[in-house]
Simulated assay, not measured.
Amino acid sequence: MYKVRMRFSKKDFMIFISHLDLARVMERALRRADVPLCFTQGFNPHPKISFATALALGVSSDGEYVDIEIEEKIDLNILKEKINKELPEGIHIIQCQYIDVKSKPLMAVIEYSTYIVRCVLADDVNEDKLNALIKDFMKNKEIIIHKIVKKKNKTREKEINIRPFIRNLELLNKEDCNCIFKMTLATGSKGNLKPEVLIEQLKDRMKISILLDSIRVHRLGLYSIKDERLIEPLEIGR
């Protein structure tokens, strides 16, 4: 038995399919490509395929990951080519890597995501002033949001400090009222912060006139942490 970790992109019309539909598309492509998948035991065996954290609807990505377990070793270039022939336009395998069969699942190792966020300002702001506002925003030790939590048919409002979930925020580019931000945010079981939530807080706290309906999000990659350094999933478990 061998384990293969694959990085893939999700773009174009595929950004509007759910994570469940993505899993079905990937499984169908693997079967059509005659990949010798390993299956679980029991009355309802299914192929051993596991994804990293789900991508929100409408978000494109160059850095999604899936692990598959196969019964026999295959040349990775041939494997990638065979799967890509069966995948629909908008989903494309970028890279494959054999990893240790005993390595932790993707969901257990992912801690951060890096995003590019494009948005439009209602009122133009000087680039230096915008950078200063971002710097001041990042100086906050607490950034409290209120979230409605439902448990046992009861709802309550919960305060969450999202500041520990923000590793990095910077302005990459600004042309007139068009802005491009880059951010690295917590993702996974230890914490999760959506880029849209951060942009909303940036707008409300720093009074930046961001048009929220103009936000477009693209995920660059998923990462784990090792010695305070971001590492890609393909580097883990080799």
Rank of each mutant, 00 (worst) to 15 (best):
Lys104Pro: 06
Arg219His: 03
Glu72Arg: 15
Gly63His: 08
Lys154Thr: 12
Ser9Ala: 14
Lys152Pro: 00
His19Tyr: 07
Arg32Ile: 08
Leu79Phe: 13
Met6Val: 12
Asp204Phe: 01
Asp12Phe: 14
His46Pro: 00
Asp128Met: 12
Leu30His: 09
Asp136Tyr: 04
Val197Glu: 01
Ser209Leu: 06
Arg31Ala: 07
Asn153Cys: 00
Leu185Val: 09
Phe39Arg: 08
Phe51Met: 11
Lys190Val: 00
Lys3Asn: 06
Cys119Val: 11
Ser189Thr: 13
Glu111Leu: 10
Phe39Trp: 08
Asp123Asn: 15
Glu196Met: 04
Leu130Trp: 05
Ala54Pro: 07
Pro88Arg: 09
Arg163Lys: 15
Glu111Gln: 15
Ala122Asn: 13
Met206Asp: 06
Ile94Thr: 11
Asp176Glu: 14
Asp227Ala: 11
Pro88Tyr: 13
Lys203Gln: 11
Lys82Met: 10
Ala54Val: 00
Asp124Gly: 11
Lys158Leu: 08
Tyr223Asp: 03
Ala29Thr: 12
Lys135His: 13
Asp34Ile: 03
Gln97Phe: 07
His218Phe: 13
Phe16Met: 11
Leu37Tyr: 03
Lys82Pro: 02
Leu185Glu: 00
Lys80Asp: 06
Gln95Tyr: 07
Glu170His: 01
Glu64Tyr: 06
Leu30Arg: 09
Glu175Val: 14
Ile143Asp: 00
Val59Trp: 04
Asp136Phe: 00
Leu172Lys: 13
Glu69Cys: 09
Lys10Met: 08
Lys151Leu: 08
His92Thr: 11
Glu235Val: 02
Cys179Phe: 02
Val117His: 04
Arg28His: 05
Leu55Ser: 00
Ile210Tyr: 04
Glu27Ser: 12
Val25Trp: 04
Ile17Met: 10
Pro233Asn: 04
Glu111Tyr: 08
Lys141Cys: 03
Leu202Ser: 08
Ile70Asp: 07
Ala52Lys: 04
Asn131Leu: 05
Pro233Ile: 01
Ile208Cys: 12
Ala23His: 04
Val120Trp: 06
Asn161Trp: 06
Tyr112Asn: 01
Arg167Ala: 01
Arg7Leu: 11
Asn161Tyr: 01
Ile74Trp: 09
Thr187Trp: 04
Ile83Met: 09
Asp34Leu: 11
Val4Gly: 04
Glu27Gly: 04
Lys158Tyr: 05
Cys119Asp: 02
Leu87Glu: 11
Ser60Arg: 02
Ala33Cys: 07
Asn126Ile: 00
Arg24Met: 09
Asp123Pro: 00
Val25Glu: 07
Leu172Met: 12
Pro47Ile: 01
Lys226Arg: 10
Cys179Ala: 14
Arg238Glu: 11
Leu20Glu: 03
Phe165Gln: 06
Lys203His: 12
